[in-house]
Each structure stands twice: as structure tokens, then as C-alpha cells.
Amino acid sequence: MDMTREDTFGLTVALVAHGALIVVLTLSPLGRKVEPPPQRMVVSFAAQVADQSASPKPDALARPDLAPTSGAPDDHPSPAPEPTPFARPKSGTAPPVKPEAEARPKTAAKPSHDPKPAGASRIGKDFLSGIAGVTTPGTDKVSPGDTVGAVPVASLVSAISRQILPHWKPPSGIDTDKLVVVLAWTLHPDGTLASDPVIVSQSGLTDANRAQAPVFAANAIKAVRLAARPFQLPPQAYAQWQRVRAFRFDYKLTQQEKR
């Protein structure tokens, strides 16, 4: 069978196109990196978004603003926050500090840093003498707030969880991974138990794990007792960790262990 010129041409084009396609498909995976699977990480959830100003130190004394420099070069790079374009009135409504006790002259936050009021500063020489009513210079690096913030509370929970975990050994058996027990307890300021842990609730019981449920709860209570010898928690936040209202104990099998 004879092929016309058009046939030959079409066949050639098809062959070339197929070849090109094969080359493209062969080459395209090159240079692509295999993404390594993500590493396991610990995630903390903060349950609440504050509806009021919150801080790890609600009564923080803020470091006073430093005078901005201009003109003559400074020996040290200025650690001061944003240069304030306008001088603040001396009567001081600006720095959120607590007026208490008697007045005392205030010194600069960092003695090593001696701002040179050279140049065109519009802040008067009396700026560094401080604000009436402040006893000591504020050195806190965080802002004051109305309450203890949600993040420190999450860290407290995380710290408690971390200290219980090595002692938390749920019993073996089928369906024990479905069991959940919630405990409550109170603590002394030294981190020991003020009251024995009590069971708030227990759930996930099935016919198969019913026998394990009391042991499951007893082991959770034991874990708290062993962790409270004593709990290592920040003493200044005692008001927050004095009472643990509901702590959930559960058990998860890893996938390869579920047959």
C-alpha cells in the first residue's frame, strides 16, 4: 500500500510528537525533590482569645522610654524602642506604671547606656529624673495587662501534662484505648497534693473494657500522686494551678499496633 505525501508527513509528525512526549514525561520527574514526611511535633492549643488585655505579668513595670537621639553619633546602638517624635508631658499619663508609694528619682534603665542629649532633641533635661510616684525603675520587658494571659495557662497545663506522662500507664486489654477518665485535684503551694485526685467522669466503657475501667482510673490517680512529689510549677502562678478542675487521661494505640 502506497502512502501519500500527506500520510508520510502526518506519520512523521506523529512519531516526532510521541518521541517528544516520551522525553518530556521521562525528564519531568528529574529535579523534583521527595518531600520528607513532617516530623512529629507537640502542639499547644490556647483555647481562648482574651477579651481583655492579658500579660504573663499583669503588674509589670514597664521600662521608661528613652530619649531619642539625633545628630551626634552614639557609641552604642540604641536599644530604645521607636523614637518618639513628640515629647510627652511630664505629668506622665503615658507609661503604664502604677503610681504607688513615695516618689524616688528615677535612673536610666540601662546604666551603661548614657544617652547624649546632643543635637536637636526636644526632650528636656528633666526627662530622666523620672515620673512622680514610681519607687523603682521598671525593668519588665513585657507589657502589663489586666489578667494573666492564656498562653501561660497553656504552659501550666503543658507542664502538668509533661510531669504526669511518665507515670501514666493505662492497663492492657482490648478497647482500653476507648476509655477516658477525667480527674480533679488541688495542690499546695509547694506542689504536693492538697486533696486526693477524684474522678470527675469516666467514659468510653464497652462490654469488652468494663473490667479495666476501675484499674484505668486507679492508674490515672496513681500517676497524679507520683507526679505530685511535688509538681514543679512556677510558684508565682500558684493561683492558677492551685486547683485542677478537669484533667483528661486517655490512651491511644499507634497505628501499627492496631491489628
Binding site: V153, L156, V157, S158, I160, S161, I164, L165, W168, K169, P170, P171, S172, A184, T186, A223, A239, Q240, W241, Q242, R243, V244, R245, A246, F247, R248, F249, D250, Y251, K252, L253, T254, E257
Partner: peptide, 18 residues
């Protein structure tokens, strides 16, 4: 603290029976 307040949290043992 009022009785209704206090910390809540959870602890999960993962893996085989030890």
C-alpha cells in the same frame, strides 16, 4: 478560686502496654 474554676487539660499515653 471559685469551685467552678481551675485548670483543665489532658494527658495521653500513646503506644504499647509497658
Amino acid at each position: 478560686n471559685p469551685a467552678a474554676e481551675g485548670l483543665t487539660g489532658s494527658v495521653t499515653a500513646v503506644g504499647d502496654w509497658e
